[in-house]
Amino acid sequence: MGVDKIWVLAESVEGVPTATTLELLAAARSLGSTVEAFTWGPDTESLAPVLGAHGATRAYTVGDVSPGLPGAPVAAAMAAQVQAGNAPDMVLVATTYDGRDVAGRLSARLDRPVLTNVVNLTVEDGVPTSHHAIFGGTQVAKARFTGPGPAIFVVRAKSFVPEETGGGPAEVVTVEVPDLGRANDARVLERHVEERAGPKLDEADVVVSGGRGLGQPDNYAMVEELARLLHGAPGASRAIVDAGWVPYAYQVGQTGKTVKPTLYVACGISGATQHMVGMKGAKNIIAINKDQEAPIFGIADLGVVGDVHKVLPRLIDALKARS
């Protein structure tokens, strides 16, 4: 069995396909012969040129789902296509809030398992094979499905590099959403955009993160200040997110964002596997921690054994003096 058709769940923000969508299209193109997008939203025609330029020949859409959430209707529409005989060999979904809803519901609806936290995909002996970083990224496990498809994979951000193919606009095909019963009863009343100065965490060239070693919530201001001075984004370890110092959106790691910046600065972060799996893809890592046995030093290009409360203020002052 080879891989012929692959569907990519295409997410968009304000009429523009997301970075992870383009990453998945690149992955799909390297694995299968036909790549199609499956999407939703008020204006799929506006997405079609970009989706096409990244290799999708067709874009199925369920249309505008608002004020509902996409999980139930998109999964049901996908399942209906599959059950009607239009089935792909693989479905690729990004590890996003909506992506996981769609993947979970599709899996249950089709009674097909799902493999998640995928960091690479290959086809081995004709079988789609997913790669997973385990034990904080020290080992790579490979897995595959043993039953009938479609094979549903949920892929972590930054696992593939987007690439244009120069293809024409994808052909937009509107598909039916079957009756959803109560599953689609949630309604979005209002969307709130939280203004964050500087680049987005998962797109920033520089990420400065803080952890428990900062001691108390107020000290996170130093992390934000350093991030600002380096034109980067502030991030956080799970420990201080759980403790309520900063919102979940700041979290870097297994349960948070995956980042691959040019530079990652870890301040007062010991390097739990949970954290490392989300940042060890950074090109360069600086770690500041008072415990010289901290695992983070095992992967840092520059490790500073010292007190963040002393090193950070001096570093911030020195950077301010230069600007």
Binding site: Q139, V140, K142, R144, T146, Q292, G303, V304, V305, G306
Partner: peptide
């Protein structure tokens, strides 16, 4: 309906310079 095929060591990231403040 899934199986683990293999587990391999990941490419190691080498520790760099460590300085004491």
């Amino acid at each position: 309906r899934q199986e683990m095929v293999s587990v391999e060591e990941a490419e190691e990231r080498q520790a760099g310079e460590v300085v004491v403040d």
